[in-house]
């Protein structure tokens, strides 16, 4: 538009910049008010709280320096167990989730009878309430439940999945894979559909097919989507809570105690708000580090150009 219509020029002049600014801030006001009160405010407050001892009775916070952090980082503390469990859970969840999502995404990205059916089935767990699904998983994993029965068909005796500290975390990982793989498959699928068909066609004419087409053309073009899924999946895994609350309460012992569950225990079972807030700050720091690291490393394997 080279010359604005005279009428439009008049309108813009009349309404002016200050009127624009007023409308803009007015429209942003509700969003900013809520985000400041319930996200940014609490975030800052939580950082402050992590340096205090909070007295529930008086509602007074007393400055405590770094003592909360010192308690957390003390050798052999529950915090290290929670951190280790969280990292194990994240590795055990993210790697299979993304691998399966790419695998199913590629399978579903072809002309296929029943494709809509498969897509619907795969996505269904994502809308199922995590709490409701976890209840079903308790039954499936209980001694002499369905999983034990399936294992018995193969001549293996079940380990007592949820009652053994060696397998409880694995059971929670399996339940989580069930819940989210379909969601990530859909993300991968839309990434695949964004690849122009003429590119793969050209590669095919040049003699690429099957695995070589996949490795040298499809996967590089999919890499930005995979990076996005990785980051999202890591963030999600670090926040695992519902499954653990329902299926194991962090047990047996502390074998499924994760950071967010520990935060819940400290804050809402023991009312150690200062310690809980400190766990939150560490969680945020770990996540930001992880995300930054992933973005940095991504330049080695993510290709943005066609």
């Amino acid at each position: 538009m080279v010359h604005p219509a005279p009428a439009l020029a008049r309108v813009t002049r009349r309404s002016g910049r200050s009127a624009d600014a007023r409308a803009g801030w007015l429209m942003l006001a509700p969003t900013l008010a809520v985000l400041l009160s319930f996200v940014i405010g609490p975030l800052v407050l939580g950082m402050g709280l992590s340096f205090t001892h909070y007295n529930l009775m008086s509602g007074q916070a007393q400055f405590a320096g770094v003592s909360n952090y010192r308690d957390l980082f003390a050798g052999g503390s529950t915090f290290w167990t929670a951190l280790l469990n969280t990292v194990l859970f994240t590795l055990g969840t993210v790697v299979p989730t993304i691998t399966l999502a790419v695998f199913f995404g590629i399978l579903l990205n072809q002309q296929l009878i029943g494709r809509t059916f498969y897509r619907t089935v795969l996505f269904a767990p994502y809308v199922t309430p995590l709490v409701g699904a976890s209840i079903a998983w308790i039954w499936l994993f209980r001694r002499q439940g369905f999983v034990d029965w399936v294992m018995q068909l193969f001549g293996v005796t079940g380990p007592g999945w949820l009652s053994s500290p060696h397998t409880a975390l694995i059971a929670i990982i399996i339940a989580t894979l069930w819940q989210y793989t379909g969601y990530f498959t859909m993300l991968v699928l839309s990434g695949l559909q964004a690849i122009p068909p003429d590119v793969t066609e050209a590669a095919r004419i040049d003699g690429a097919h099957g695995l070589s087409l996949l490795r040298q053309v499809v996967l590089p073009l999919l890499s930005p989507t995979i990076l996005f899924c990785l980051i999202l999946s890591v963030i999600q895994s670090f926040q695992v809570f519902d499954q653990i609350y329902v299926m194991t309460d962090g047990g047996p012992g502390t074998s499924t105690l994760t950071l967010v569950y520990y935060l819940y225990q400290l804050g809402f079972e023991f009312f150690h708000f200062g310690h809980g807030a400190a766990v939150g700050v560490v969680l945020l720091a770990v996540l930001l580090t992880f995300t930054a690291l992933q973005l940095k490393l991504s330049s080695r394997w993510v290709h943005y150009d066609l």
């Binding site: 996200v39 935060l263 969680l283």
Partner: peptide
């Protein structure tokens, strides 16, 4: 705000 893991805000938000 999309990047903030929401549980971190729960203790302070609860106090508010």
């Amino acid at each position: 705000t999309m990047m903030v893991p929401v549980q971190i805000t729960f203790i302070p938000a609860f106090l508010i």
